[in-house]
Design a protein around this nucleic acid. Structure first.
Lengths: 288, 288
DNA sequence: TTGCTCCTCACGTCACGTGAGGTGGC
DNA sequence: TTGCTCCTCACGTCACGTGAGGTGGC
């Protein structure tokens, strides 16, 4: 018969753990002194302790281990199997998660080695909701004309909305329909969210200089928040595309540019002095 | 300017998280109403929130993220690099750990499928300490003679110790020196721990029917606790060897059989009525 | 007045490690 | 008497989720 210190050395666990297991009912000492509270263990309890340690090593919570040890004669194969299957699924999920984290950490380390400093923006993945937008679309011949094209497309859009007596919401969303990053013939769409119309928005818009449609949501999108002038946004776009490529994601729709700090130009055509822009790229969920 | 609910929707985080980050100083609202306590955020704080989320996704603790965000102008490449390197090492360790757990869980599931019920003993890995033992060694021609051989070897050992006036400790340890599991010519050594002797144990033992030596420790050993008669221990030994093989470990010394419940036979030669035995197999640390 | 949003505590999570403060046996 | 071991609380861990109980603006 052993005192707690001896038994803890035999079992290679701390005395605190033995007290803890006592408290949880996992491993009651074979005898406890009623006056001093001293716990006394016997050798044959080592087998039970070993079992607890072995199951704990698999990552099972103590409560489940307690359930298993309840049955006096050996473990119930059925219950154990159930717990192992759950733990297996959990482990597979955790493994994928850590692998992704490790990939990301390593990518960032490489990026710092190469550039000498971290990126001035962060890329995260998130879900984006579906919404109804009114929009106009056109092709700008060159990058240099983009700014003017966008400005006039938005002006045209707002003018049309006003004429049709339609209210709109924030933020403006510019969509880039080209499959890849290009510097000429940019297929661009400017959009603003509108309240979904139960009466049938489409019919009332016959002949309008814009269309209404649902901009689909996406459970998975890469997003980046950019602060600075629109003219200098190209590196951010490339960083986002690079991130997506590095993670072997595939785009699932046009790049979206959300003007979070308000319209890119006010009604007098003056540019937003301090733009905050969110770039979103919807992605296909990855199947392995 | 947004209230906490709007801002939380924009950033895809809970309001509770925003309050938490406020409390930790990670992301203070740009303005807080002095009377109602209402928190007000601005769009340009979204970039900071994004950064927090992105770093959190890597598994960095909020406290470290706070350190990084302290520096007003962008992240310090040096500090970030340091944290990423630490996190990388941590992740590699966690990954190895989960992989081991998954392997073990799957092995147990297979075992249940095949046998219909779990093993009646658990195998764990642990460190075993070095100790000084007195021992005698011999070869038993067949398995059938093992029991008698061991009994007489222990009797010879205890007799010799008594004659030399040496005290000994628990537990008896039987060592099996054969490289593999065999059924004839069993090279067996029976040992008991003795106090290490600073005066030079060896010299006083000239002519003794036993030797004293250090039984080396091992940082890694597979161990199993067996309860039952010695004669039925074979399946436990095979299970232990199977475990070691399944994990691609290599043995690093003879199998040890510790008689935890006391000597296998008392002085009248009667066997221990309820033996508790720990089997230990020292292992080579695995290098990949 | 009724919902909605916001607020501030404060508990619970999981398996212990780590004191604090005190007692029993050699 | 001095160490050693044991005891029982109780706090701290990490990043929030989840009430409880209450207030301000449409």
């Amino acid at each position: 018969v052993y005192k707690i210190g001896e038994f803890s050395r035999l079992g290679q666990v701390s005395a605190r753990m033995l007290r803890h297991y006592d408290q949880l009912g996992l491993l009651k000492p074979s005898q406890t002194d009623r006056f001093t509270g001293y716990r006394y263990y016997t050798v044959d309890q080592l087998a039970r302790l070993h079992r607890i340690i072995a199951l704990k090593e698999l990552g099972l919570p103590l409560e489940q281990i307690g359930d298993l040890l309840q049955s006096k004669a050996g473990l119930s194969a059925e219950r154990l199997r159930g717990m192992l299957l759950m733990r297996q699924a959990e482990l597979e999920h955790e493994l994928r998660d850590r692998e992704r984290q490790l990939t990301d950490v390593e990518a960032r380390l490489r990026q710092i080695e190469q550039e000498g400093r971290p990126l001035p923006y962060e890329i995260v993945t998130k879900a984006v909701p579906a919404q109804v937008v009114a929009s106009v679309r056109a092709v700008a011949p060159t990058v240099g004309e983009m700014s003017y094209y966008c400005y006039s497309l938005y002006a045209q859009l707002y003018e049309g909305l006003r004429q049709h007596g339609l209210a709109w919401l924030q933020p403006e969303i510019t969509l880039y329909h080209n499959e890849e990053y290009v510097e000429s013939d940019l297929d661009v769409e400017t959009a603003v969210p509108v309240a979904p119309d139960p009466m049938g928005l489409q019919r009332s818009l016959a002949g309008a200089p814009f269309t209404a449609r649902e901009l689909p949501g996406s459970d998975l999108a890469a997003a980046l928040i950019y602060e600075g002038p629109y003219a200098e946004m190209t590196p951010a776009i490339l960083a986002l595309l690079g991130y997506v490529a590095a993670h072997r994601y595939l785009p699932a729709g046009p790049l979206r540019e959300l003007h979070l700090s308000g319209p890119a130009h006010d009604e007098q055509g003056r540019p937003d002095p301090a733009p905050v822009v969110e770039l979103q790229l919807p992605l296909q969920p990855l199947q392995r």
